[in-house]
Design a protein around this nucleic acid. Sequence first.
DNA 1: CTAACAAATGTAATTTAATTACAGTTTAAT
DNA 2: ATTAAACTGTAATTAAATTACATTTGTTAG
Lengths: 286, 286
Amino acid sequence: MNILEQITLNLEKLSKSERKVANVIQASPKTAIHSSIAALAKMADVSEPTVNRFCRRMDTKGFPDFKLHLAQSLANGTPYVNRHVEETDTVEDYTNKIYEATLASLDRSRQMVDTAAINRAVDILTQAKKISFFGLGASAAVAQDALNKFFRFNVPVLSFQDALMQRMSCINSTEGDVVVLISHTGRTKSLVEIAAMAKENDATVIAITAKDSPLAHACHLVISTEIPEDTDLYMPMASRIGQLVIIDVLATGFTLRRGSKFRDNLQKVKQGIKDSRFTAPPITKT
Amino acid sequence: MNILEQITLNLEKLSKSERKVANVIQASPKTAIHSSIAALAKMADVSEPTVNRFCRRMDTKGFPDFKLHLAQSLANGTPYVNRHVEETDTVEDYTNKIYEATLASLDRSRQMVDTAAINRAVDILTQAKKISFFGLGASAAVAQDALNKFFRFNVPVLSFQDALMQRMSCINSTEGDVVVLISHTGRTKSLVEIAAMAKENDATVIAITAKDSPLAHACHLVISTEIPEDTDLYMPMASRIGQLVIIDVLATGFTLRRGSKFRDNLQKVKQGIKDSRFTAPPITKT
DNA sequence: CTAACAAATGTAATTTAATTACAGTTTAAT
DNA sequence: ATTAAACTGTAATTAAATTACATTTGTTAG
């Protein structure tokens, strides 16, 4: 889909002259989209038909079509090349790579997100007598964040980081309770176990996790973030950010479903924390 | 900048025929970018020069240039229009809006991030005898996440959610200690106070916060996320995600700086948590 | 080592698309 | 009702892209 990626990908399959074209385009794609085929040919020191052949090889109809695709790729800033951090990277390098990887994951997640599942989750949450958010490791921070958000809604909500406390909480759960379990892999034994416990006690179990995972099978409703990240090997990065956005979406759905009277409540919470802050400076638009 | 917006904006200033062109383009911009000027003229039931005149009026050089701009506008889905969630939004609507807002904020943050500050922060962190991460509210979850990451590095690291514990910890800090304070607004009184305390005890104080804020002035080094989000009015969403990415970048910089021997250590931590998980299924590339 | 064929590249011709110049038509104001 | 200005279309022109074909380069088998 992304042309710049495709150029990098097929670079070896190109002929010598075609590669010259590729280099010129990669060097300054912004110039490329504003150039005619003649100008580009000159820059790459090849003939015009060579440029045209290059475009065709990139699965486009011709030069104008190629420019269109290029323009679209460029519009996304620097495009989502899934480059891994290397030892020799400078600060700029690895900073950019991490931002890009995160952006790419989020974008993918957006495209794949199951809004029907979101909707059902919001349904369940709005009707809950009590909501619990549980996660371990990196997902514990996500659970904590969810607590912070839902706490503002004046709804009974709790979160524990301690696996034993989580367990006890689930054993004591009853009908009307909703347990939200967060795990990227869906293979954390302890969470799968408490999912079963909560289920047995007639609580509703929602999981923000990988679909088809043990945890996914152990609960009533799964919201999948669809972010491919091997947390067995690497530290969780994009995965937990995807989870947080899901939390945002759920919290937003929750406030919308509860209606406008309910939102007055939010303002009260905001007022409550105001005194803990220094006053904001007059707004000067940057 | 965005052509589709600009069309809507200048719609009244167009002549009758030009408006026909505008309508056709707005109706299906995707078709428009793949059409010739002749085809578009036919669709809008006007002459070719009218289409050309329309393009010029949109501040483009001509029809091909217009198509380029249009393609770019289209690439961003609906781009960075800071659309707020509305009461009448469907699940799809608000889900998309939240994803888009998050993506836009992150993209902006990426462009503004101060890599020099990142680099200095990594310097300081790698030389730290002890690292503390403190935040309150939504930023507490971020601090917790940082704890989870840096804990893997086998470095003395701690984090408290309790403002009093944070305070006590800072009072007892000494030279060589590094305190990382996280706050979106930089106006949380308690954090500004402990920044001063830590500083007095010769600890190095790093803040992930808004520049020119009280907290920013109270510490040695500021890393700004440059995400405009009014957390006085709305719940923190994109802001904390920006903070998390900064944590990722710092953690990555940390591992790179420490060299390869150090990274063996990470593998040990990974092995250690392996038993708590169910085994992963054989990798089937999707 | 060279003949012969295939792949690659460029030149020139052709086709297609976009733009300009100009003329006819509509519209609005006096 | 008349006139001027703005609008729109037709036809001519120019520019751009594509195709067809010729030449060169490289590679392999004899």
